[in-house]
Design a protein around this nucleic acid. Sequence first.
RNA 1: GCCAGUUUAGCUCAGUGGUAGAGCAACGGUUUUGUAAACCGUAGGUCGUCGGUUCGACCCCGACAACUGGCUCCA
Length: 666
Amino acid sequence: MSSDQNQAIQPERKTLEDRARMTELERIRHSCAHVLATAILRLWPEAQFAYGPPVENGFYYDLELSHRIAPEDFEAIEAEMKREIKANHPFERREVTRAEAMADAQSGRLGGLGPRPGNPSRFKLDLLAQIPEGEPISYYQNGDFVDLCAGPHVMRTGNIGAFKLTTVAAAYYKGDEKGPQLQRIYGTAFKNRTAMDEYFKMLEEAKRRDHRKIGAEMGLFVIDTEFVGPGMPLWLPKGTVLVEELEKLAKETEFEAGYVRVRTPHLARERMYRTSGHLPYYAESMFPPMEMPLEGEARARERELAQKVEALRVRCSAPPAGATPEETARQLEELKRLEEAHGQSSDRYYLKAMNCPHHHRIFDAQPRSYRDLPLRLAEYGTCYRYEQSGELFGLMRVRSLNMNDAHIYCTEEQFAAEFRAVNDMYLKYFKVFGLSKYQMRFSTHSPSGLGKKYVNEPGLWKKTEDMVRTVLQESGIQFVEVANEAAFYGPKIDVQVWSAIGREFTIATNQVDFAVPSRFGLHYRDRDNTDKTPLCIHRAPLGTHERFIGFSIEHYGGNFPLWLAPEQVRILTLGDEEGLVRYAQPILQELRKHQVRVEGDFSSTPIKAKIAEVEAARVHTMLVIGGRDVEAGHVSVRLHHGGPQGASPKERVMADILQAIQERRS
RNA sequence: GCCAGUUUAGCUCAGUGGUAGAGCAACGGUUUUGUAAACCGUAGGUCGUCGGUUCGACCCCGACAACUGGCUCCA
C-alpha cells in the first residue's frame, strides 16, 4: 500500500526525500488542498489552517473556524475553487529565513490571503517550530494564498483536472485526543474527469459490497441493539455456517501444526488481570467488573474490616488533640494496609477481554519440562471489549468477539522457528482466501513510553525486537516497521488488509510476550535442572470471526466459494410434477448425507422466478431438473454468477461438488 | 468519547402543521413452466424514544438512543 496510507494513520513529518517521491496524482491532490484553503479564505477570511496533505483517495485540509462547514457549503466552496483553478495561478516556491517565516505567521499572512492583524497563524507557528534547524523553510504561493509548505506542487492551479469535496469531519490537531478539535474537509482530485468518474463508480460498487448490506441481504447476522446491545452481533443460521466453516479450517490447520485445544470460561477474578498487568493498561476497554456478594465468614470478616477502615479514616482526618505525629503516621500506615486488605477481599469478576491469562493458568496447571515445549494452546475464545461507542462498526469493530487465538510457550532457541511457522500459517490462509493485498506491520515500542505504555524492560524490548526483525528478514517477508505501536508486553506483527471499500483493517496478529509469563510465575524445568520462564507468542492469524467474516463478505462480495457458501446447492424442478420430484428428492438426500448444505425448491413457481430468487440469495450451485434430465439421468448445472453449465450425469455432478468442497476450491 | 449527518412497513424509498403512501418481500388463491422475476387478492406502520411549542406534530424546538461518515482507539 502507498506510504500515504501510513502517513494518514500515523501523521509523522514527511522527510524532504519522502516529498520528492510524491507522485503526479499526489501533487495534484496536495495542490488541490491549497486551492481548497484559498476558496475557504475567500468565504471566511479568518479561517486558521493546520495540515493539508494528500491521502490515499484524495486530500484534506484541517482548519479552525467558528462557522461549522456543512455539506451545503460545498457548492459555494467548490465554486471558489473552480475560480482559482480557472485563474491558472502558478504555484511559486520561495525559500525564507526562519525569522521571516515567524514574522509572517505572527501577522496572519501564512495560510491567509493577506496579513490578518490580530489573527496570527497559530498552527503554522507550531508547524514552524517542528521544522528542524538547518532544514530549508519554504512557502508556496498561488494567487493571494501563501502557505508554509515544503511542496511539491503541480506547476499551475489549472493542472488540477477534476476535483470534488466529499465530506466534512472532525479531527484532533496532530491526532491528539486532548488537543484542539479541527474541522477536516475531505476532497478528492484527479488528472481528469474520466478518472474521477471511475473512482466514484468504484465507490458505488464498494457500497454494494458493504458487509452490513450483504449481511442483511443474505441473512448472515443482525445486531440487536435494543435487547442485546450495540457491537454484539447475533449470528443467524447462514452466518453461523461461515463461523463454523472457519473454525473447521482453523482447527484442521492448527492440529496439523501441532497445536492442542483448550477451553476456558468467559470470566475471571480481578486478580487475574491485576497479575497479567492488563488492568492498569486496559481497564477502559473492559466491561466494568461484577461485584459478587460474599458468603459466610468472608462476609463477616469483610464487614469488620470495613468498620475498622471507617473508624481509622475518621481518626486520621481529625486526630485527637493529644496525638503525637508518630502516632498519626502509624495510624495512616495502618489505614493504608487495611484499605488494601479491604480491596483484596472483595470478590470481583471481569468478562475476559483476552484469552492469554487463562492460557497462562493452564500452562501453570501442570509441571512443565523443556521436553513439553513448544506448547501450543489454541482456543476459539469469546472475549468482550468495551469499545467506545463511536468505534463500533458493523462486524469489523464489535464488543463481543471470537478470537482465533493461540499461545505458544517456547524457549528462546525455539522462538525463531515458531514465529516463522506462525507467519507461514498466515500466508497459507491468505492463499485459501485469495488475499493478495496485505501488508505486514512490525510494531515496536518507543523508549519514551517505557513504564507507561510499555513494560519497563529496555533490554528485553531490544532483544525480542531484534529476534523478530531477524526472522522477518530471513524469511524474506515484506514488512514495514512502525515504532510506538507494540503491545504493552512486547513487539508484534499485525497484518493489514484492505477491504473492497478501501478501508484498512488489522486482520491478523502475531505478538511476542516477554513480560506476562514471568508475572504469572510460569516456568519449565530445563535440561540443566533449573527453572526457566518461557517466551510466549500470541497469535491470531484469522483475527476474530467477526472481523474476518466481515472482511470476507466484502472480499467475495457475498459470492462465497462453494466450501464457504451458507447454502451450497439448490435443486430446482421445472414444476411440481410427481416424476420430477421423485427424481430430485434422492439427489437432495444423497448430498445431505454427505453434509452438503442443499435445499430443494420443487414448487410450481416458474423456473425463471425460482432462478431469480436463488441468484439473489447467492446460492453457489443450482441443479435444474426437467423432463429431459430425468430421461437422461442428468442434472443441469447453473452457477451463481456463472450461468448455465449444461447437463451432466447426476453422479458426476455430485462427485464434483463433494470434491470441490473437500479441496476448499476457491 | 469527540465533530457532523441520518432515523417513515421486514427491505428500498415517497410524503404533508389537519392524525400516512409505492415497489419488493410476507401471507391466501390462480398458474405447470428449460435458466434473473406469471396473474389476482390480503395483511402489515402510536413515522427511533421521551419531553416541549401548537386548537392540532410524522413535520417545528430540545434531550436521549441507535446508526452512518470521520477523529481518537483497535483484533
